[in-house]
Nucleic acid binder design. Structure first.
Length: 492
RNA sequence: GUCUCCCUCGUCUAGUGGUUAGGACAUCGGGUUUUCAUCCCGACAACGCGGGUUCGAUCCCCGCGGGAGAUGCCA
């Protein structure tokens, strides 16, 4: 049997880490088993639906490089793959259950249901859920209510006796007494759209899905879905419920933990390979040792056996580490083009890069590469090139173990050594050597000379390496800034 | 309230009826370095608790505790 799996998001929000992890697991499982990966859009909630979400779904998957074999845009033999376009299918199947007495019309108002829920919650009653008020309406009663123009929902009749079991590849058998299953859930809403339970079961069957990999939050609905499959007389697919992704506090990962939308990570300058690598490792491992995986690796070695059962906390710091690793591995040409937008946005370079901007960006890459955790770090790292906020506090120039006089001296003499050396085409090591000698001469540590020079040139104690900074700044500007610092120490 | 699931360092995890319980991130310390970063080395740090079963349990069983999820005309 060929493996067919699907990712079936609801376009009611931006694609987030948890969702994308589910997509990745499904995608990798399909690839590793020579199966098909299907994308299905579950847009049955028209209240929360948004076009933006749908666009975000496509653009996020594209950015990550996840291609679906069947689904929207690309089509496939079991389409359409957008549930709102399958409207009639669900109505038909729901009606079939009604005709067979396995489901029934319900005319209860949302208000009544709300009231019911409130009462049950207040009384801490053991029984929670719908009271099956409309379960036994007669044909004439139904006719009358329909005549009054009340739009009914269709509810699925859940048995009150017995129990239902489904098998989960990770968890084993999971059994619920039928009386504990949500009593007679709505399967078709009054607007004619199906709820998740109905649409999901019908589509998974019609699309011949073999393995359902979805988040563990669906475990409690498992038995209900089995009951639905049985009501239709369909074979139940294999289940594999994925551990949830949590925030630092152990709650389901959400916005209050930080960014969760993949789009936000992309905007901050995370690389798709870092996201893929790290996110896949949340709740899955190959051997506990290997930690670098390319998408291509995972397409080969992903296994269900490696999926963990317990929920996992999403560690932003570890993602940062992975991202830094991938930035360092990336080739410079690629980094140039990745970095450019951040510099453009900061107003540091012109929007369509001029030739000289381009050359500058290329020169920026090597020194900055070792220092970025995210691509947007390039802005603060190179700000000194584009904004000149001179440091006027002398204390900042003075290194540990030095003093004002010696620092002034280091600046004055150091500038000369540096400038004449550079102009004379001396090697950096030679100039470095001379500056070190100067430090010895002044009786201070090497940094006593380098720090003030660096502060003068980069306007910061924390900066790119001195010679890199000069190369990027240019001789004229370097000379100007050095002179200004020398002057600062000559005052008083 | 009820139901279901889960439980190895702070975090992600490996692992076995007998191991110095392994790796990674984070943290701390050290080295390289003109600062920062990178890189390298090292340290800290875990089997939730209580009963069994067993010569021996982190591992098997039971209970407890803790955590999470579900309980919608949301998915």
């Amino acid at each position: 049997m060929d493996v067919r799996v699907r990712y079936a998001p609801s376009p009611t929000g931006l694609q987030h880490i948890g969702g994308i992890r589910t997509a990745l697991f499904n995608y990798f499982f399909a690839r590793a088993n020579g199966g098909k990966f299907i994308l299905r859009v579950e847009d049955t909630d028209r209240e929360r639906y948004s076009d933006e979400s749908l666009e975000d779904l496509y653009s996020t998957l594209e950015w990550l490089g996840i291609k679906w074999d069947e689904g929207p845009v690309v089509g496939g033999p079991y389409g359409p793959y957008i549930q709102s376009e399958r409207f009639d299918i669900y109505r038909e199947y729901a009606q079939r259950l009604v005709d067979e007495g396995k489901a029934y019309y319900c005319f209860c108002t949302p208000e009544r249901l709300e009231e019911l829920r409130k009462e049950q919650a207040a009384s801490k009653s053991e029984y929670q859920g719908y009271d099956r008020h409309c379960a036994h309406l007669s044909d004439s009663e139904i006719k009358e209510l329909l005549r009054q123009g009340i739009k009914p929902v269709i509810r699925f009749r859940v048995p009150t006796e017995g129990k239902t079991t489904f098998h989960d590849i990770l968890m084993g058998d999971i059994t619920r007494r039928n009386r504990d299953i949500s009593p007679d859930p709505v399967i078709l809403k009054s607007d004619g759209f199906p709820t998740y339970h109905l649409a999901n079961v019908i589509d998974d069957h019609l699309m011949k899905i073999t393995h359902i990999m979805r988040a563990q939050e669906w475990i409690p609905s498992g038995p209900l879905h089995v009951l639905l499959y049985e009501a239709f007389g369909w074979e139940v697919p294999q289940y594999c419920h994925l551990p949830m992704v949590m925030g630092k506090d152990g709650q389901k990962l959400s916005k209050r933990h930080g960014s969760t939308a993949v789009r936000d990570f992309r905007a901050k300058g995370y690389l798709p390979e870092a996201i893929i690598n790290y996110v896949t490792l949340v709740g899955w491992s190959l051997d506990g040792e290997t930690e670098f995986f390319s998408k291509e690796d995972l397409e080969k070695c992903f296994t269900m056996e490696g999926i963990h059962k317990a929920p996992a906390v999403f560690d932003y710091k570890k993602l940062d580490w992975f991202n830094g690793q991938y930035i360092r591995q990336a080739d410079n040409a690629r980094l140039s083009s990745l970095i450019a937008p951040y510099l453009e946005e900061a107003g540091y370079v012109s929007k369509p890069l001029t030739d000289s901007d381009k050359a500058l960006v290329e020169k920026i890459v090597p020194p900055v590469k070792e220092r970025m955790k995210v691509l947007s770090d390039v802005v603060p790292l190179t700000a000194f090139l584009f904004e000149d906020n001179a440091v006027t506090d002398k204390a900042i120039y003075i290194a540990k173990g030095s003093d004002e006089t010696k620092t002034g001296e280091a600046l004055r003499k150091g500038s000369c050594i540096l400038l004449s050396g550079l102009k004379g085409g001396e090697k950096e090591e030679v100039i470095e050597e001379k500056l070190s000698s100067l430090a010895a001469e002044l009786g201070i540590k090497v940094n006593g000379v380098f720090q003030p020079i660096r502060v003068a040139i980069t306007n910061s104690t924390v900066s790119l390496p001195l010679f890199d900074s000069i190369r990027l700044l240019g001789m004229d500007e370097t000379e100007k800034r050095l002179a200004r610092a020398v002057k600062l120490f000559e005052e008083n």
